[in-house]
């Protein structure tokens, strides 16, 4: 390659390198905002400081879902198979909310009771796509 082109190549590489470094630093700086949720183990090991709303995510424990008979109040336990915390919520749940399925709850964490007073429940689904008939056949 000719000399002046080589020089420009170094310039291009320099720009890309510097901006890559800058992006990494920015993502480190906002790491806590980038991680969408705490797992129950995180909440036990390193409970969040302050009175801010947090997100907690995990699987809904089988058999833990309790609905109130006269209101929309719901109570269930989320677990990451090591630790688990209780979640209270009032409202309508998303369609994909099921026991043993992933869920992300936003709300205020109660450190003394290890529970979360949620104001938003989001369902998390995985990357597996299987036809309904195949799944039925597999379960038989």
């Amino acid at each position: 390659m000719k000399q002046h082109r080589l020089k420009r190549l170094y310039g291009v590489l320099f720009i890309v390198f510097c901006s890559a470094l800058a992006f990494v630093l920015v993502y480190f700086a906002i790491r806590d905002n980038v991680n969408l949720f705490y797992s129950p183990s995180d909440l036990f090991e390193n409970p969040p400081q302050g009175r801010n709303a947090i997100r907690a995510g995990g699987l809904v424990k089988i058999g833990s879902l309790r609905r109130s008979t006269d209101s929309l109040e719901i109570e269930f336990i989320i677990t990451d198979l090591k630790k688990s915390i209780a979640v209270n919520y009032t409202g309508i749940l998303p369609d994909l909310f099921k026991e043993n399925a992933g869920v992300v709850a936003t709300g205020y964490f109660n450190k003394s009771k290890m529970s979360l007073d949620a104001y938003q429940i989001l369902a998390k689904h995985d990357e597996n796509y299987v036809p309904k008939e195949v799944k039925k056949a597999l379960e038989k």
């Binding site: 890309v16 901006s19 890559a20 992006f23 980038v34 991680n35 969408l36 949720f37 990357e127």
Partner: peptide, 25 residues
């Protein structure tokens, strides 16, 4: 050129962080 750094982040974000978005199928 500056923006190209963002692309590996888009691609790998679902593996590097706890995201609501599911990983690639």
């Amino acid at each position: 050129l500056v923006g190209v750094v963002n692309l590996p982040i888009v691609k790998k974000s679902v593996d590097w962080w706890n995201t609501l978005h599911q990983p690639a199928s």
